[in-house]
Amino acid sequence: MGIGRVWVFGELAEGKPTTTTLELIEGAKSLGASSVEVVLHGPEVDGALGVLGGTGVSKVYNVGDLGDALVGAPIAAAIAGQIESGNSPDSILFGATYDGRDVAARLSAKISKGVITNCIGLEAQGDTIVASHALFGGSQIAKSKFTGAGPWLFVVRAKTFSAPESLGEASVESQSISVPDLGATGAAMVINRHVEERSGPKLDEAPIVVSGGRGLGQSEHYAMIEELAKLLNGAPGASRAIVDAGWVPYAYQVGQTGKTVKPTVYIACGISGATQHMVGMKGSKNIIAINKDKDAPIFTICDLGIVGDVHKVLPALIDALKNR
């Protein structure tokens, strides 16, 4: 029977499928699914159909505009409704996004099926999907699979698959699916949306990421990270230690409990390289580390290591770049 039908929980931003969504579609195709179908929501689904058709998906399920409701409960209920009425996929892929995890978790409990999370690879082996996971800072890879009947739910980390470089347009079948009555579970409503202005590329899409850690000493010194990132047209990131300390928001965090990044160059400044952090950046094409402790684990995975004080190296580097 092969891998069968694979659904993707897709998300739109400014009317277009997000990078994560495109990655998941590529992933579903790479599994050799008999059909790849995407579940979408929001007021802009119809406008995105052309691009989705261009990715080669065979169907789009439109849950419609959810208004101000948080999406976890309604999308999970809409998918569960399809499964109960006999229109069941064999597997569903979710991005490890704020909403993707909510939908996967709700759906898992609703249909009493487990969910395999933090996948950094999915491959078809016969009729089974094998998921890979990074353990202990990425020093080991565990492989897991479901032992029971599907639908199998997988939450996949960003950058596991590559989104296509360019997108064409093609028509695709679209079907509306409805949200059943949610009772109390659907009662969480957004009353205000705050957009924090951030210049430069997004953390998980930037070609260069400059991250700071506890070695910066104090929160004011994070400004050096932001300045360097800006000079390199990159994105600033952070280790968990300084997010926990409240220096920068959670959205900056690179690591196991944060974002996975795979930039062309990752510059780790004052980061020792705890397993928690390494798991999120080890896949970078090139790694530069600046740290005063020559025994720091970060130096075991870097392509260029500067054993030195970030408070000296970073200002000199910033000056040199400014003077070019």
């Binding site: 020559k294 130096f299 500067i306 054993v307 000296k312 970073l314 000199a316 580097l317």
Partner: peptide, 12 residues
């Protein structure tokens, strides 16, 4: 593992 150098002021 690539090149590891001690900063002598020219590390940048």
């Amino acid at each position: 593992v690539g090149e590891i150098v001690e900063d002598d002021g020219e590390g940048y």
